[in-house]
Amino acid sequence: MLVAEQLSCGRNGRAVLEGVSLQLLPGEVLGVLGANGAGKSTLLATLAGEIAPLAGQLHLAAKPLLHIAAETLARSRTVLPQSPSLSFDLGVREIVAAGAYPFPELSPRELETLLARTLALADATAFTARRYLALSGGEQQRVQFARVLTQALAGKVVGEYRVLMLDEPTANLDPRHQLLLLRTVSALAKSEGLAVLVVLHDVNLAAQWCDRLLLLADGGVAALGSPDEVLIPPVLQAVYGVAATVLPHPASAARRLVLFG
């Protein structure tokens, strides 16, 4: 399990966030919300092992994260960064297959089965044979999603801990694919026991699909808890700096609907 205690994160020695303590539990989707510049991506990069924490403890399976070799870490931690790019034109299939690079032990047959599954999960099967750079932004995003699903599911045995980190995965997607992506993430967390951390901008999407929410403000944690507990006007005002109204959702009374302004 990935566990952070009293974590300070930042780049070049300047802390953006302080005192973050959290656990990424298997089977749970943790949403990260915050205004622009609140430190969401910095937190994700720190938890992913890309940048060293400035202070505090960060452990994966009781080992300090920074002591785990890159190729070992890649077998249990998967990241979808914001706005991924590509320098030369690769085929869609090769990009999705790159997700299996940390698992050279997979047979070609196992790889084919896995790719067919993850391409279908990301609704990218239709452009398997196309070139990546010929796709639209939203289609590229779905291909990248298929790639990280490949890495998160490759050779996974039941009960094995895997963590999937997504940085604004819905940014380029139309509403239907935003819903499909988060539904897939949520369903995989339950069925495969994946631990998921997802940075989102849309509070209502987060309320619908995340089990717990982490709200960042003023260089620290503003709230951490279930959507019902944390999506309340004073917290939202502190996080986003605008007045917020919280209503029961017209489609499902158990859910919150947040309106700003």
């Binding site: 890309e50 890159a70 190729e71 890649a74 990241v79 790019s85 690769l90 790159a98 997700g99």
Partner: peptide, 20 residues
């Protein structure tokens, strides 16, 4: 070849795929 393919996705992505 795997490392070079991963590099095309970006240095961060290559790192995430296990290529330090």
């Amino acid at each position: 070849w795997r490392a070079l393919n991963a590099l095309l996705l970006g240095e961060r992505e290559a790192q995430h795929l296990g290529f330090a």
